[in-house]
């Protein structure tokens, strides 16, 4: 599972099988390679280095889920959708590099909730968000009301002051 930015650099990535790409150098080469194959055509699925990769992009981010070539493509797709949807709702629909980095901690927790050591833990975005969204009032699942936006803006302000 990986999230890359629009230059093909890694934002977050997690590999669960030690036999595929054992070192981080190999991982990064693979990511670069994957990125160069996928950043232009928006084709959702590709085979690379014996792996089936499904992907999806949003503004300046690319979400990838990789699996062995024998894996059911649709299962991979469901994981990707879950990853994307949970990140979307965590970031309140502003899926950009900036916002991901701002709430990196929560995104990390979400990835941890989706997949544990290579086994799908949960593929339902709502329940993933529920499990990581500790500030429950903070992350609405539907459209936000004006009040909520204001509230969160205040929260943000407080945050930056605290820093």
């Amino acid at each position: 599972m990986a999230i890359l930015d629009n230059d093909g650099n890694r934002i977050l990535a997690k590999y669960y099988d030690k036999n595929v790409f054992p070192t981080s150098k190999e991982q990064k080469t693979f990511e670069k390679n994957l990125f160069s194959k996928t950043h232009r055509a928006n084709a959702e699925i590709i085979m690379l280095d014996g792996l089936t990769c499904v992907y999806r992009s949003s503004v300046d981010l690319f979400f990838y889920v990789m699996g062995s070539s024998h894996e059911n493509e649709l299962i991979l797709m469901s994981v990707l959708n879950c990853l994307y949807d949970s990140v979307t709702s965590i970031l309140r629909r502003n899926v950009e590099k900036r916002t991901v980095l701002d709430s990196l901690d929560i995104v990390m927790l979400a990835m941890d909730e989706i997949c544990d050591g290579g086994i799908i833990l949960d593929a339902d975005a709502t329940s993933v968000v529920q499990r990581v969204a500790l500030r429950t009032d903070d992350i609405p699942l539907g459209e936000q009301t004006v009040a909520q936006v204001l509230q969160s803006a205040k929260e943000q302000l407080k945050w930056s002051l605290l820093k």
């Binding site: 997690k14 981080s24 990064k28 990390m108």
Partner: peptide, 18 residues
């Protein structure tokens, strides 16, 4: 908590970058 969470995130990020 806020400060520590931020630092911990940094550590995790570094580990993640290899």
């Amino acid at each position: 908590p806020r400060k520590c969470a931020h630092i911990l995130t940094k550590i995790l990020y570094l580990l993640n970058q290899g």
